[in-house]
Write a protein that binds this DNA or RNA. Structure first.
Lengths: 169, 169
DNA sequence: TAATAAAACAAACAGTTGTTTGGTAAAGTA
DNA sequence: TACTTTACCAAACAACTGTTTGTTTTATTA
């Protein structure tokens, strides 16, 4: 997905057309505009990510295990090559002003699951739960900027992140 | 800085010219190309960030304190309004292919300080030091995507991140 | 088979992009 | 003073952008 790797502005309708083997104009039979195309992809992306996350935490576990499984699932989502989900972190909603609120809302829906998972954790009072969520999502989202296939697998990376959060410093 | 908030592609030479009160063409008296302009700004950005970081860890402290002070300094850098440093996370080096290597090198130089700081830490063997660096930078860099003035101050945010890493889960 | 709808094409459109050009006023220098 | 350099402007350039148009191919239905 070009939106995910290059960003919204840098991806032209001609690029997209070439990727799917079409003429640029043909895209407008399926989508009314570039923004609408992004919106459609973004929706699929969030649903894919949500499905993966839901599956990872479906079985009953203690809150801590749920949290750790969620981190690993989200990391895998971010690093999965065949996955639209990277548009969530590769596109600034600011780039598509008319659908900005919609994109943000979709993403917020996904992140709400993490809010719930973290809310179930028993944590010392010194830890700000909202900050924990932002820290975890920030760190896992960032993996896609440095990840290169051949090193640690996505699962291993997720596991290492969990290991750090389990007993840090 | 427009590059930082909008990204490279979405920032036009006309935008920049308007911001500094010039005609678009006049910019080319000072910089040979858009890429060269980015390069110059990026260099200033990294130097600013490095200076702030160096100052924060200048006084002798135990490794753990140095680490915590570094996190707070970097968070402040990311959230400081009057600071070029955000281009480091707001621009994909991929957008400017001809200077990509140069940008990455500058940034790597900055992050090397964190590598050194983390190397001095005494950590349980279950913690991967490289992953700790990536986690911390990922989480702190991400602050600029959700930070809004009026809530926690940059320093408070940095402190909260430290609190999480100090005794996580 | 003939008629109709779906999906694509080729070519163009107006607006925007980074960049170049030739000129000009101000500042510095001999 | 005459000359050169610095810093800018106004206007244009070709290339590229998202999008529209009219037409043709492909698939579906009667």
């Amino acid at each position: 997905m070009l939106f995910a790797t290059r960003g919204y502005k840098a991806t032209t309708m001609r690029d997209i057309a070439a990727e799917v083997g079409m003429q640029p104009g043909s895209l407008y039979y399926h989508f009314a505009s570039k923004q609408e195309l992004l919106q459609a992809i973004y929706e699929i992306a969030v649903k894919q990510a949500q499905a993966r996350l839901d599956e990872a935490i479906a079985e009953p576990h203690d809150p801590k295990t749920v949290f750790e499984r969620a981190i690993i699932a989200h990391t895998e989502t971010m690093l999965d090559q065949n996955n639209y989900a990277k548009v969530m972190t590769g596109v600034l909603p600011l780039d598509a002003p008319e659908i900005q609120a919609d994109l943000t809302a979709m993403r917020d829906g996904y992140e709400a699951t993490f809010t719930r998972i973290i809310d179930d954790l028993q944590l010392p009072p010194s830890i700000d739960k909202k900050m924990l969520r932002l820290l975890v999502l920030g760190a896992t989202n960032a993996t896609r900027t440095w990840y290169r296939p051949g090193g640690d697998t996505p699962e291993q990376i997720g596991t290492k992140i969990v290991a750090i959060l389990r007993i840090a410093i």
